[in-house]
Amino acid sequence: MTDISMHLNTDEIELWAQGLLPAARAMHLADCSLCRVEAERERKVILQLVQLPKFAPSAGFADRVMAQVKVHAPSGDWTA
């Protein structure tokens, strides 16, 4: 059992930011403003990272790839 007065380590802060820290450890945040500030800052960065958009390559990307891939045709021939 971890002592409730022990500061959270980086891994625990990451877990907390993701809502995964066990309640027994999360309780430490109620009493420790040092960890609270640290955890809040970390949560903000992680949230921004998690919300980053996915970008798509331009149209026809798959065709350009496929044009250069060896496909084993159903007939058994190799086509470029």
């Binding site: 970008f55 798509a56 390559p57 990307f61 798959a62 496929m66 060896k70 496909v71 084993h72």
Partner: peptide, 19 residues
Amino acid sequence: GHDAAFRELVRRYERPVFS
């Protein structure tokens, strides 16, 4: 080496890989 399977793999991973 199936064309359709290759295309499906590209479709599935093009966005994460490109990003």
